[in-house]
Write a protein that binds this DNA or RNA. Structure first.
Length: 571
DNA sequence: GCCGTTTTCGGCCCGACTGTTTTCAGTCG
């Protein structure tokens, strides 16, 4: 087994033990060990061969033994026992809100419920309200959760899409008879979630290439196909391989990148200009096929500016789009990394390690934002720890000069809209990011009021992950965005674009709307370790989809300008 | 399960919400 599979097995075991009613600390120890392994740079081979597993936090004798067995592909008795006792499909029930190990066990033992489908039917028949640990309200909440999960079935986060798309490109690009390979579809356009990966292959020998791709990817079940595309399932994701020939690769690149509505709009515009467009997006003029030598050439036919894939959507006002399209923000323009967690709270790196990473990668500043005191689950900082952290930052600022570390905090917004520290502590931070982490079940009025109150707090600088959504897991609370945007403008508060792939919050459509109202943004990594820093590019893609330019994004500003923007605040 | 030790075993992250069981179990972040 490789490292990822071992980590999955440890987490699987912890879920089984939760159903089995084991000691909660034992359950947590497997999760902790999996977490540690995930955040360790060394390969699993190295850790085992140099006997270093036990040196890692949370890995003792028993878990070490299990990891070694898993690595060698030998059975782990504890895991085998659980797999024999409970069906594997039972674990999928953990994705439903309000279902934990205890209730899942009751469902299994009383009604033999093993799948989400069976759970849904039992809810609809009103069978679970009377079970021990359940009631009518919980039954309704579970049914609601099941319906949400079903809506997202088959969808994946964009990072998974990228990972799979790149893996496929790397695997097939060397196949003889393939001229070129492109990532197309929603992955190329950077939608936050995807339900398939689209790859376009340029070849003159389609049937031969299909066979070779099947062999290379070890997939044989071609689900359905037409003359241009073949559909497979690869690692649980729907994979479409589209084909083009060298002479029509750019029109097909445009066509398969989409979005569907965007392509339709351009097709219509071409027809209005006197061109003919066939089903495969070949373009003709007076029956003569036009040689299209780049994607840009399609835009030129319409005297339109080239639009990068991220903005090939139907949303924008034409004049706003045209004014901004040449100046869309680029990743290289980001000068400071904002909202990172250190090992003071639930991050895995020291502040110095984070700062060194930023420095080495050419950034000018870092804003450390650990969790505030009421976030006990994430080791939120009490007041003494805040002071200790500030001393450390001051010392590091002397050591690392001219690199600058700002004292930030991700401060919880409490249910009544107040912040999680008294004013005399809030005033010691350079940057206060305010976020909602708990009590998320709110209607639009309550949520808007709570967040408005936090925006109006004189110490607030940035509103963090505004919607509270976790993509494909949790919808987040509804908000009156117009009101929130206006309050931010009034109070000189910026809005975060959180680049974590499960958040991507603020949503790009709202980024566009906020930009139109004149809001300022900060693209943050919300990194909990150094590898998480790679997500910055995701945040930049969301900003580009929202048509942001560097002027709209405060962390493209040099350190002094960045911090001065917030000083305009009236206290 | 792990960890730190008074090296044999107690503590481990915890406050808040929910529904209803008026004292707590289950779940969540």
């Amino acid at each position: 087994m490789d490292k990822a599979e071992i980590i999955r097995a440890l987490r699987e075991l912890s879920l089984y033990l939760e159903i089995d009613g084991e000691n909660p600390f034992k359950i947590r120890s497997y999760l902790k060990a999996a977490d540690t392994l995930e955040h360790t740079q060394e390969s699993i081979e190295e850790l085992i061969n140099t006997n270093k597993l036990r040196e890692l936090e949370g890995i003792g004798e028993a878990i070490e033994k299990k990891i070694i067995s898993l690595y060698k592909g030998e059975p782990v008795p504890a895991l085998e026992k659980m797999r024999n006792k409970y069906p594997e499909s039972l674990l999928s029930l953990f994705s439903i809100p309000f279902l934990g190990g205890k209730r899942i066990k009751v469902l299994f033992e009383h009604l033999n419920i093993k799948t989400i489908e069976e759970l849904k039917n039992a809810c609809l028949e009103g069978k679970i309200a009377n079970l021990p640990g359940f009631n009518k309200k919980i039954e309704n909440k579970i049914l609601k959760g099941v319906e949400l999960i079903s809506k997202w079935e088959g969808f994946h986060l964009i990072d998974k899409g990228y990972e799979i798309a790149n893996e496929i490109v790397n695997k097939i690009v060397g196949i003889s008879n393939i001229d070129e390979v492109y990532i197309v579809g929603s992955v190329r356009r950077f939608t936050e979630t995807i339900n398939n990966v689209d790859i376009m292959v340029v070849t003159q020998d389609k049937s031969e290439v299909i066979k070779k791709i099947e062999k290379e990817l070890d997939i044989t079940t071609s689900q359905k196909s037409d003359s241009n595309s073949v559909e497979f399932i690869y690692k649980n994701i729907k994979l479409n391989i589209h084909f083009s020939e060298p002479h029509n690769k750019y029109t097909k690149l445009f066509y398969y990148t989409g979005s569907k509505d965007f392509v339709e709009k351009y097709k219509f515009a071409l027809k209005r200009k006197g061109f003919e467009v066939d089903k495969e997006f070949n373009i003709f003029h007076h029956k003569n096929r036009i040689e299209v030598l780049s994607e840009n050439a399609i835009f030129e036919l319409l005297n339109e500016p080239y639009l990068p894939p991220e903005v090939r959507e139907i949303l924008y006002e034409e004049d706003i789009l045209k004014k901004r399209i040449d100046r869309l923000i680029k990743e290289g323009e980001i000068k400071g990394i904002v909202h990172c967690h250190s090992n003071y709270s639930d991050g895995h790196n020291t502040i110095e390690e984070l700062a060194e990473y930023c420095k080495d990668n050419g950034y000018e500043y870092l804003v450390v934002c650990d969790h505030s005191q009421s976030a006990g689950y994430a080791k939120g900082l009490n007041i003494d720890t805040v002071r200790k952290q500030h001393d450390e930052i001051e010392n590091l600022n002397i050591k690392l000069k001219p690199f600058k570390i700002f004292k930030g905090i991700e401060c919880d917004i409490r249910l009544d809209g107040t912040l999680d520290y008294p004013n005399d502590i809030l005033t010691t931070f350079d940057i206060v990011v305010v976020s909602v982490h708990s009590k998320l079940e709110m209607d639009e009025n309550i949520a808007t009021q709570r967040i408005t109150c936090a925006i109006n707090n004189p110490f607030t600088h940035i509103l963090g992950h505004p919607s509270g959504r976790l993509l494909l897991t949790r919808a987040g609370y509804p908000l009156n965005y117009e009101k929130i945007f206006d309050e931010c403008l009034k109070n000189n508060v910026a809005i975060e674009i959180n680049a974590q792939p499960q958040r991507l919050d603020l949503d790009w459509k709202n980024v566009y709307k906020g930009m139109c109202r004149g809001l300022k943004f900060v693209i943050t990594t919300d990194a909990h370790d150094i590898p998480d820093m790679r997500y910055l590019s995701y945040g930049v893609s969301i900003a580009r989809k929202g048509l942001l330019t560097p002027e709209d994004v405060l962390n493209t500003y040099p350190a002094e300008e960045f911090i001065n923007w917030f000083k305009k605040k009236k206290r």
